[in-house]
Design a protein around this nucleic acid. Structure first.
Lengths: 168, 168
DNA sequence: GATTTTATGTCAGTCTTGTTGACTTTCCAA
DNA sequence: TTGGAAAGTCAACAAGACTGACATAAAATC
């Protein structure tokens, strides 16, 4: 990581050559494969897919969330999410409770079995992230998060920040 | 980007709480959506998909590459890649030439039209990356790349580094 | 109270992109 | 020269995204 880099802060246009940007693009592409590789391997053996993992992750993060909220976060159609949820509910990994104040809403929770699978998947993913963080060091991690945040689409960034800061 | 961070180098275990790792995981998930959003929008209007973009990108990067080499890079089955290539060749975006020394091999090149589409897609993706890099600053960019590299699977990291350093 | 809007679920059909299996052509080495 | 391996192609199937249409129930509004 030496080419073209300033070592102190400030604007450095050398970082913005097409060459540099291309390296970032390819790094992002290859890294995402690594990022999903471990959960994918676990899921393949259990007849679930990445879509189920995503649902489990965010239901775990936001217990009692409604279907609509989950749709915003996941950025898929309700038909697509519904297929996944139907399966998870049928298999006893997710529980869907009718809302108290608004009975049209369904609030989603992980069952014990759902939490167990979520934990298994998350731990595999965290293990890789932990290894990467350790290898790169704390300063690199701060930079990593900064660039990723700046790469998100506007509306999604707000969703992310709300989640990140633990606001409901 | 304040919580739990050391501002000078060295090991800092506070970065490795599950909480911190989870934020990184979610950042990666949301950022990847942004990363692919612009090319996806362009492709949707042209009746191509992400797979076509990936093929165009790497054929552009490695003109004359063989199908096998491309398979290693893209990490899909040859049947899957073949469908994409067939279409790109039929549409006159990619040219496939029989190898000289080994006539089993097909060497792949972008046509003028292929290069034009690749440039359009790449420029959209670079624009977002450029904006993110500018917003985050050069030091953050270095960290970003370090963490991404550490996140890749072993074999893929070698592919990436070879490409990155411009070795054939 | 009647009407409209919202939240959710479901059915049917399509598309992209992944998969496996079977096959051809070509090369190379025993 | 023959038999296996490698490169590539074709066919059929599956997951998971999409759109569109429609149903139900509850809340909100007029």
């Amino acid at each position: 990581m030496t080419e073209g880099g300033a070592t102190s802060g400030g604007e450095n246009l050398l970082f913005l050559t097409d060459e540099q940007l291309r390296k970032g693009i390819e790094a992002m592409f290859f890294a995402y494969r690594g990022f999903t590789a471990d959960p994918d391997r676990i899921l393949a053996g259990k007849d679930y897919g990445r879509a189920h993992h995503r649902a489990l992750h965010f239901i775990n993060r936001m217990p009692g969330t409604t279907v609509s909220r989950l749709l915003e976060i996941l950025g898929v159609t309700k038909q697509s999410l519904n297929r996944v949820l139907r399966r998870l509910i049928a298999d006893g990994l997710v529980e869907s409770r009718v809302g108290n104040s608004d009975r049209r809403e369904r609030h989603l929770y992980l069952t014990e079995a759902g939490a167990a699978l979520e934990a298994e998947l998350s731990e595999a993913q965290r293990a890789r992230m932990r290894k990467a963080y350790r290898a790169a060091g704390p300063e690199a991690v701060a930079g990593f998060r900064q660039v990723l945040e700046a790469m998100m689409e506007e509306e999604i960034r707000h969703q992310y920040q709300t989640l990140r800061d633990g606001r409901p």
